[in-house]
């Protein structure tokens, strides 16, 4: 599946036929009480997802993963979104709400980060599952049948009964399954799953990942998986994109990434992982130092205060995301470039 090519300024592995092609995405939020001032949370982000591909988006807490995911469907009410989000040849950034609504849920579906709050407390599980279909004119009865099938597929026992229950009657693991069922019921081409395993215990985590795996294989659905867990990335993804302080700082195939990450931040991540395979889970927040405050980003490279290899240039110049020569990866670091190129530059 992974047939990476070198395309300029991108680590795209798609044959120019990316299903989802994000270019220079930026997301700004108005500051509360700031009278028109805004805060840029995500900047200059490129990301591609080919049909059937599984891309992992990693980064420590607060790096902007969820904001990115929600921006792809323009879900945050106050977010101001810049750049392009090309999906099936259309730019979601400039689409009208009405046109975008046709894509939400049926072409691109979403599993939000927190299953505890994603379900509406006063609606029955069945009605919430069926909603994606009923709002498109599918009769309620038929939609509920589909809802039951979706729950069945996710291995929820006594699915028919569960449709009449309310969210507070469900445990965390069950809610996560319901959220997944809610996402796949519209048979989307892309599933964006925001940390679908974080809230779960290890055994259930494994089950959920396998479920997503199966579903993707069955229907050819592409998956953008957001996670904290390098173990999940290694066992599951085709490609990895690493975010730091709202930027993508490294993107590559999963094997290259684990073999030799190039960005000092990514290297730091991997150093704390003794052996990379399915059994190892590591929290990404273990790197010393704290991530920058989006309101007061450091000058130059946002990572330099925590970097052990910074040079003068890192303090003043923001490194661009560049495709490395002879490699199928892009890195945004002044020090990651081969020596000779650094001399030239």
């Amino acid at each position: 599946m992974r047939t990476p090519r070198n395309t300029p300024a991108s680590d795209s592995s798609a044959d120019g036929e990316a299903l989802l092609d994000v270019r220079g995405l930026s997301v700004d939020f108005p500051v509360a009480g700031g009278r028109g001032r805004t805060l840029r949370i995500v900047r200059e982000l490129d990301l591609t997802v080919a049909p059937g591909e599984r891309v992992a988006l990693v980064g420590e807490s607060g790096s902007g993963k969820s904001v990115t995911a929600r921006a792809l469907l323009r879900l945050d009410r106050h977010a101001v979104i810049g750049g392009q989000i090309l999906f099936e040849g259309r730019d979601l950034v400039t689409l009208t709400e009405r046109e975008l609504r046709r894509i939400r849920g049926t072409r691109i579906a979403m599993v939000l980060q927190d299953p505890q709050t994603t379900l509406n407390p006063v609606l029955s599980i069945g009605d919430q599952l069926a909603e994606t279909l009923t709002i498109r004119g599918v009769p309620r009865k038929a939609a509920l049948v589909r809802a039951r099938e979706a729950l069945d597929r996710l291995g929820v026992a006594r699915a028919g009964e569960r449709l009449r229950a309310y969210p507070h009657e469900f445990s965390g693991g069950m809610r996560q399954r319901v959220c997944l069922a809610m996402a796949i019921i519209g048979d989307p081409a892309v599933l964006i799953a925001d940390e679908p395993t974080t809230a779960l215990d290890v055994r259930v985590q494994q089950q959920v990942l396998e479920l997503i795996d199966e579903l993707a294989a069955e229907s050819g659905m592409a998956v953008l998986l957001i996670t904290h867990d390098l173990g999940v990335v290694a066992g599951y993804a085709d490609r990895v994109a690493v975010m730091y302080a709202g930027r993508k700082i490294e993107g590559s195939g999963v094997e290259d990434f684990f073999a030799a990450p190039r960005h000092p931040y990514a290297q730091g991540l991997l150093r704390s992982v003794p052996r990379v395979d399915r059994d190892v889970s590591t929290d990404l927040d273990l790197i010393p130092g704290t991530p920058p405050n989006p309101a007061e980003p450091p000058s130059g490279c946002a990572f330099h205060p925590r970097c052990d290899r910074w040079v003068e240039r890192c303090l003043t110049e923001i490194p661009e995301l560049r495709v490395l020569q002879d490699e199928e990866r892009a890195v945004a670091c002044h020090r990651a470039l081969p020596e000779r190129e650094e001399v030239v530059a």
């Binding site: 879900l75 849920g105 579906a109 379900l119 407390p121």
Partner: peptide, 16 residues
């Protein structure tokens, strides 16, 4: 409206 379940409803394609 800021609650996740409302965001989820929008993600399903529900009208305003």
């Amino acid at each position: 409206l800021e609650a996740d379940h409302v965001v989820m409803a929008r993600a399903k394609g529900a009208s305003p």
